Computed example of a mutant assay.
Amino acid sequence: MLDLHQIFSMQKKALFFLFALCALGWGFTPYQSIFLGIGLGAFFGTYNFWILVRRMDKFDSSISEGKRVVSLGSALRFGSGVAAVAIAITLPQYFHLVSTVIGLMIPYVFLVIGAIVYSVKNK
């Protein structure tokens, strides 16, 4: 199985393509707020996944050293999700709220798709 750092690096590559698609959609379609919302949500979703990767490293090192187990940062990730939604609510002329929430879930969708592709390749 791939480790979390490899998954995160693959996700970063996929998300750069998503950001490019959002930029093109923002520039060439009348749905600018939807594409900005998806981009904002994907940015905060990627930040949340980065926090998870970093905290999992600390968790693994704490377990291997026999130290007290630290938190996995759920409150920080929840807070950044709330921040993304707060930005979308505060600036509705720029960011579409529903697309921002969908964008928050995109890194996790990429995670599931990556796991499926990996399992199909190695069967």
Rank of each mutant, 00 (worst) to 15 (best):
A75L: 15
I51F: 06
L52T: 08
A20D: 04
S119F: 12
L72I: 15
F110P: 02
L15Q: 05
K58A: 15
G66R: 02
C22S: 12
Q32I: 06
D3F: 10
V98P: 05
V82C: 13
G103E: 02
G25E: 00
V109I: 15
G114M: 13
G79C: 04
F44S: 05
F44V: 13
T90C: 05
G114S: 14
L111V: 07
Q11H: 10
D60F: 02
Y31F: 15
D60T: 02
Q6K: 13
T29M: 04
L91V: 09
Y108R: 11
R77H: 07
M105Y: 11
S64K: 14
G37Y: 03
N122T: 12
P92C: 00
Q6G: 10
T100F: 08
V82F: 10
T90E: 05
R77I: 15
R68D: 12
L91N: 08
A88P: 04
G25P: 00
G39M: 09
I51C: 10
N48M: 15
G81H: 01
V117I: 14
L21D: 01
R54K: 15
G45D: 07
G41I: 01
F8D: 12
G66I: 04
A23T: 00
I116A: 14
T100N: 06
S9I: 11
V82Q: 04
K123R: 11
K58Q: 15
A23W: 00
K123Y: 03
F17D: 06
T29Y: 04
K12V: 10
I116N: 09
F16C: 06
V101R: 04
Q6V: 08
V85E: 09
M56V: 11
L52D: 03
F78M: 12
L21H: 00
Y118A: 13
I89L: 15
F35S: 02
H96A: 07
S74I: 14
G27I: 00
F19M: 11
I63E: 11
I51A: 03
G41E: 02
I116V: 15
L97N: 03
F28S: 09
L111W: 14
P30F: 05
T46H: 11
V109D: 01
Y118K: 13
K123F: 05
D60C: 04
H96R: 07
F95M: 04
L18I: 08
Y31G: 00
F78H: 05
I38N: 02
L4I: 14
Y94P: 02
L24M: 13
A115V: 07
K12S: 12
L21R: 00
I113V: 15
S9T: 14
L52H: 10
